[in-house]
Design a protein around this nucleic acid. Structure first.
Length: 513
RNA sequence: GGCCUGGUAGCUCAGCGGAUAGAGCGUCCGACUCAUAAUCGGAGAGACCUCGGUUCGAAUCCGAGCCAGGCUACCA
């Protein structure tokens, strides 16, 4: 029975327009999920939409439709985006689906039964126009005025159900002490630890000022606050709330919850505490990436410089889907600092890595075999020379990087193999030797070694470049089978067809602006 | 305000106690011509933010400062 692997994106808020952030997070998860499937793991990749809350209720009203109709429309757009970018999610959960709502109520019941909930009163700064509370920090920042209308905030009080987060402080401390990799990267973990030291407050988990949400069981009039509702998606999708999908139980706990840095606290502190209360296992790692900025400027609604769907589509039209995915994964803000999305950098990366390295290397090797060996994989009496060991080491290193969610390093391993092949060709000059019929055997060895290395590098690139690596694999012998077979030296046996490929076309100039 | 990161070649970054500080890209020179005007080699290029400390030895550890960014409880 194969080992399992599971990964999640946050569920996306249907009130937002899809943009580079959503595509980035999803693409990271997709690349990892594809890598694990490639390795033969029993893999589950979950994403979805978060559809409750005041904002949805208000937007729907403003657009003259019901909240459900509004959510349906926008959720459909998020799903369309997944298909557009060829994401391979295994499920798409929506918080308005009956399967989710039913389980959230059961799980909240369980929290209450476990003594993790208490009724209390909440007092805070209330924006009457927006019908929403602002945090103390935010209120202060806005000079105690509504950031929207500018009218003064009022002190308001509400009866709510609270989650007794403070009661979990000792267990959370132990979690962070025992599992230093629970939150990554390390800089983010430090931030969480810093805040943990300041002490934990109980968190309100119900609201009474809107109705678009899941009713609190046994206390109508109270609606379960969107965050609690949303976090639970990770387990409701697997049927853990009501045992409705036993065949999916094996995918919990998740290996990675990949999230943006702004929602780390919920995932790193509130969520594990909820799971402790529910007596469910904790995810192995919450990975918080940073943000993209656009041409040196922070993306914001006021600047109108969001890298939105049309912008992304423009890159795909011009450079192809592989190019976009490659740039996002290899140049993205996977560590604790934001990174810049620049059109010029996108162009340079595409040219240097996909065209001049992946494309050209596979092209020159396949072309020489086409010419010299009639498009058949030649014999190699040298048994691969140093290459089998080098490739085996690369495969092992790649697996380690994937395990640790070091996606950039994983791509680097494959690129390193291709660069070595390019150097090897220049040193051994098979194209020169080919002119001397007496040295045909030698040429065969060289080219066979190159071809097999390129094929293996191509396999390692599949999760990141899912479109063109299909052509690469087909052109380099069409080696099938499982991971062990495909990653093994020698699978491209002599005599197999090997046709010339031209994977990534040159794109002459960087687009203006 | 509090807390957390980072400041290393023109650019993006790796190195985080030990030899002349590295990679990729860009630039310049050379080689080659199988390949997508690609590739390979070489070169140039750095007070490793500043000041002080610890040490036989500091880019690396400690302290202070400067600069940039982040987090501070409902936007990927």
């Amino acid at each position: 029975m194969p080992a399992t692997a599971s990964i999640t994106t946050p569920i996306y808020y249907v009130n937002d327009r899809p943009h580079i952030g959503h595509v980035y997070t999803t693409t990271l998860c997709d690349a990892w999920a594809r890598a694990m499937r490639l390795r033969g793991f029993d893999t589950f990749f979950l994403t979805g939409t978060d559809e409750h809350g005041v904002k949805v209720e208000k937007s729907a009203a403003a657009n003259g439709v019901s909240p459900q109709a509004w959510a349906d429309r926008n959720a459909a757009e998020f799903e369309a985006v997944l298909r557009l970018f060829q994401q391979t999610n295994d499920d798409f959960i929506r918080t308005t689906q009956p399967r989710h709502e039913r389980q959230v109520q059961l799980l909240v019941e369980r929290l209450r039964a476990a003594g993790a909930l208490a009724k209390g009163s909440f007092e805070g700064w209330y924006d009457e126009g927006e019908e929403t509370y602002l945090t103390e920090t935010k209120a202060k920042e806005c000079d105690y005025r509504s950031p929207v209308s500018g009218r003064p905030l009022v002190r308001a009080r509400e009866e709510n159900w609270y989650f007794r987060l403070s009661a979990f402080a000792p267990r959370l401390e132990r979690l962070f002490a025992d599992h230093p990799d629970f939150v990554r990267p390390a800089a983010r973990r430090n931030e969480v630890l810093g805040r943990l030291r300041e002490g934990l407050q109980d968190v309100p988990i119900t609201r009474t000022n809107f109705s678009w949400g899941i009713p609190m069981p046994g206390d109508p009039g109270h609606v379960i606050y969107v965050w609690i509702d949303a976090l639970l998606n990770y387990v409701t999708a697997l049927g853990l709330g009501d045992g409705s999908q036993p065949e999916r139980n094996r995918f919990w706990p998740a290996d990675y919850h990949v999230v943006g840095k702004e929602i780390l606290w919920f995932h790193a502190v509130i969520w594990p505490a909820m799971l402790m209360a529910l007596e469910l296992p904790l995810p192995k790692c919450v990975y918080a990436h940073s943000f993209w900025i656009s041409e040196g400027q922070k993306m914001s609604k006021s600047l109108g410089n969001f890298i939105d769907l049309p912008a992304l589509q423009g890159y795909v039209d011009r450079y192809g889907l592989d190019a976009l995915r490659w740039f996002l994964v290899t140049r993205g803000p996977l560590d604790a600092t934001d990174t810049d999305f620049r059109a010029a950098a996108f162009h340079d990366t595409y040219m240097a890595e996909l065209v001049n390295t992946v494309g050209n290397c596979s092209s020159r090797v396949s072309a020489m075999i086409g010419k010299t060996f009639d498009g058949r994989m030649p014999e190699d009496p040298q048994g691969g020379g140093e290459w089998p060991a080098r490739c085996a080491a690369a495969v092992r290193a790649w697996e380690g990087h994937i395990d640790r969610f070091e996606l950039v390093q994983a791509t680097g391993v494959a690129m390193g193999l291709l660069r070595e092949v390019d150097g090897f060709i220049n040193r051994t000059e098979p194209f020169k030797l080919a002119k001397d019929p007496a040295r045909r055997g030698e040429v065969g060895s060289i080219l066979a070694q190159c071809a097999e290395t390129v094929r293996i590098a191509g396999v390692l690139l599949e999760p990141f470049l899912p479109v063109k690596t299909v052509d690469l694999a087909a052109a380099f012998g069409g080696v099938g089978g499982d991971w062990a077979q495909r990653s093994r030296w020698g699978a491209l046996t002599p005599g197999r067809g090997l046709v010339k490929v031209a994977l990534y076309p040159r794109v002459e100039t960087a687009p203006a602006g």
